[in-house]
Computed example of a mutant assay.
Amino acid sequence: MSDQCLFCGIVAGDLPGVKVAEDETTFAFMDIHPASDGHLLVVPKRHSRDLLDIPAEDLAAVTLAAQRIAKVAVEELGADGVNLLNCCGADAWQTVFHFHLHVVPRYVDAAKDRLILPWQPGVPADIDTVSSRGERLRIALAEDS
């Protein structure tokens, strides 16, 4: 736990938060700046800065907790879908540096859902660029294993 981390403070009960679920490894609470009705965060109890820092077992636990919560959001809140979102690094919109997954219930009804896409799905990229980057990643991953 980090003394200066907002989410560590919420997990510890030192700062206010609307708890939704908790288990041995994870803690889920409502986002106070929601993108949609029912938007919440799932965090590991053990502090990790971001996706690049979190131990695999904590990442797995957070992901499984997020899946469980997403299913309940669809059933209980009548969501039409769910986005799981992680932002890793300030340039990727991370504002609190404690790993977290956003569970964002999605609704056809715009009154319940304020999230809009920052890019346009379906707009194709240059296939040579896509292939080149894919090859670089494939080689680096093969060398890493």
Rank of each mutant, 00 (worst) to 15 (best):
S48P: 10
S48I: 04
S48E: 01
D50N: 13
D50I: 04
L51Y: 03
L51F: 14
L52N: 10
L52V: 10
D53Q: 08
D53V: 02
I54A: 04
I54G: 03
P55V: 00
A56D: 15
E57M: 13
E57L: 15
E57D: 14
E57A: 14
E57C: 08
D58Y: 04
D58W: 10
L59I: 09
L59R: 00
A60Q: 13
A61I: 11
V62M: 10
V62K: 01
V62Q: 06
T63Y: 11
T63V: 13
L64M: 15
A65D: 02
A66M: 09
Q67P: 07
Q67F: 05
R68V: 04
I69R: 01
I69Q: 02
I69Y: 04
I69L: 12
A70Y: 00
A70I: 04
V72S: 03
V72K: 11
A73N: 04
V74E: 05
V74K: 14
E75R: 14
E76F: 14
E76T: 14
E76Q: 13
E76D: 13
L77A: 06
G78P: 07
A79I: 03
D80Y: 13
N83R: 12
L84A: 09
L85R: 10
L85W: 05
N86Q: 11
N86H: 12
C87N: 15
C87A: 15
C88M: 06
C88V: 09
D91Q: 15
D91S: 15
D91N: 15
